[in-house]
Amino acid sequence: MNDTYKHNRSTIETAQHRIELADAQTSFNASSEQSVLVAMERAGQALIPVGCRGGGCGQCRIRILNGEYFSKRMSRAWVSPEEEAEGTVLACRVYARSDLTIEPDPPEVATSWSTVDRANP
């Protein structure tokens, strides 16, 4: 019930922004109160890899090519101050202030397990 209420209220009170991928016809809506990553998840899309959702693991790194946004602190392991100034951010830590054009930029995380079959149903 609470969620429904919050959802209705945010639809009424907060602006919806269009988040569009640079190289495809795909897009989703994000309110200015949801991180770009969570907005994508709620839209049922998988355009950006989802990791910790807290600015720590780097999986959801994107480049913002166009638009206004607000960002919260994110791990310097994945985004340097210079990169951040040029629009490289973690999608879980940015909030749209206008329509955005973005491009996923997930870091390569090597594992020691590449030869191991991970599923055994």
């Binding site: 079959d117 991970r118 599923a119 055994n120």
Partner: peptide, 25 residues
Amino acid sequence: DSEQLGKAIFYHDRQLNERFMTVLT
């Protein structure tokens, strides 16, 4: 045994998700 990795980590799903290996701080 690593052939049983999925079950070793998540006993019910029996499948390891990518996040378990790559989402770290």
